[in-house]
Structure formats: C-alpha cells, structure tokens
Design a protein around this nucleic acid. Structure first.
Lengths: 126, 126
DNA sequence: CAGCATCCGTTGGGATACTG
DNA sequence: CAGTATCCCAACGGATGCTG
C-alpha cells in the first residue's frame, strides 16, 4: 500500500465531499449558468452556502467564474476541463450508490423534477 | 436532472467521506485483518476513531465483523461484496486525484511504505 | 486485545443582515 | 443580482480513562 494512492483519493474526496458539491457539479455539466440559475436548480441550498461552495470549487480549479461588469451584476459559472472530467466519476459513484441503496431495501422513486432536497432523512439504520 | 441520481451519489459520499474511511477500505481489500492489524497499518489513526469508523462501515454494510470468543479477544474484519465493489470506485477516484494534484503542481513523491500520515498540510493554495 | 463512555475543539453548513 | 461579514449550532474527529 502506498501513501501516494490514499493521498490522491483523499484529494478527490476533499474536493467533492461538500454537502452540495456533487449537486452543483452535476447541474453545471455541459452548461454555463448564472449564479441565480444554479440557485434556482437547487432550491434548498442556502444563498451563502452556495457562494462558499462555488468559491471552493473555483479555488480547486473545477470551475471558472466570469464576472460581467454590468448593472445588475451578472456572473457565470462553467466547469473547467477537470470539472468536466469529474462527471464520469460522479456517474460511477451513482452506480455504486444505487446498488447499495437497493441492497438496503430503500428503493428510489422515479423523480423527474429538478434537484430539490435530495438529502432528507438518511436512514441511519441502527 | 433527477433527484434520484444525486441521491445515489450522496449515499456513496456519505459512506466514504469519513476522514479514514477510504484508507481503511483500501487496507482491507482482499484481506481479513484483526483490529490491531488495521491499526498497525494506519499508525496515525486514533484508537477510538478507528472503532467508530469501523462501526459505521459495518453499519453501512461494507464490512463484516467477526468476534472470536477468546482471551485475549480477537476480532476480524473483512470487506463484504459491496465493500469489495468499492475498490474500483476508489481506483477511479485515485486516477482523478492524481491528475488533479499534478495540475496543481504538487507532484506526489514515490513512497513504498505503509499508510502513514497521508493528510498533513493540504495546500489550500489561495 | 478490543471496545465503551465521556468530554472537547474544530469545522462546515446555515441564518441574518448589509453592500454595490 | 451577486457578494461580504458575522454569528450560531450540530457533527465529527480526536483524547483520555475504564472494562472484560
């Protein structure tokens, strides 16, 4: 076992493990959205929290922020190459998570709506 | 965008995002280890913390705990099918993380030793 | 050896209010 | 509209001490 490996994994997790990080990234895949549009896609996220998480994602090089000097202000966010690369990984996580949730006898309902509150009661099952 | 997808991803992240979870899982891949052996592989982890994280991983169905009624006590941990399935995902995370770390001009040094302290100073680069 | 109970400091998400 | 500046609280990792 190499430290190298676990370091790389931790690096990934540190970036993606924020409560809304994955959702934000998914929303932005293949698109360029304004702050308000992201917010609209994630109704339950706190305004301030969204700003923080976007900043972190920007700092970590996953997305690019473009600020237009207008009134009213307009700011757009796009995934960088590395952000887009993450989609594949997120899909992978999704596959595993689905299988695991089914195992736990917590079948997911079909749901076509926009991302709303995906957290809710996480069954701690103890 | 479906709530379903992000829920599955969150389920995965919730399980894997503990500070030592990934390391513990990696150590256990393909093996059956005693508590003390896991502890020995992860010198920097706190005794109590390891117990907690193992319990969570057990609760989440990733590993199985076998307690032998002996003196001194002996307890062994093995990955379940679902735990083993995670290896592929962890490898995927590793690939992405390596690429990302290289981008950040923080090349990783080769290191053949056992998992030690892989965290240390995470360069926040701001 | 493995585990429990307890306490503690830090952190991260969230709420609120205010700016250009 | 987008962002800053604070404050708050719950949760987690970690430290210590005790048990069979």
């Amino acid at each position: 076992m190499k430290v190298k490996q676990i370091r790389a994994i931790k690096a990934t997790l540190d970036i993606v493990c924020g409560k809304w990080k994955a959702a934000i990234l998914l929303v932005l895949v293949g698109k360029t959205l304004r702050f308000s549009e992201i917010k609209a896609s994630l109704p339950k996220i706190n305004h301030q929290t969204l700003i923080k998480q976007l900043k972190e994602l920007e700092r970590d090089g996953l997305l690019e922020r473009t600020s237009y000097d207008e009134a009213p202000p307009r700011v757009e966010y796009t995934l960088t190459e590395y952000g887009e690369d993450l989609e594949e990984l997120l899909t992978h996580m999704m596959s595993w998570g689905e299988k695991h949730l089914e195992l736990k006898k917590q079948p997911l309902e079909e749901d076509e709506v926009i991302i709303d509150n995906f957290e809710e009661e996480r069954v701690t099952s103890q």
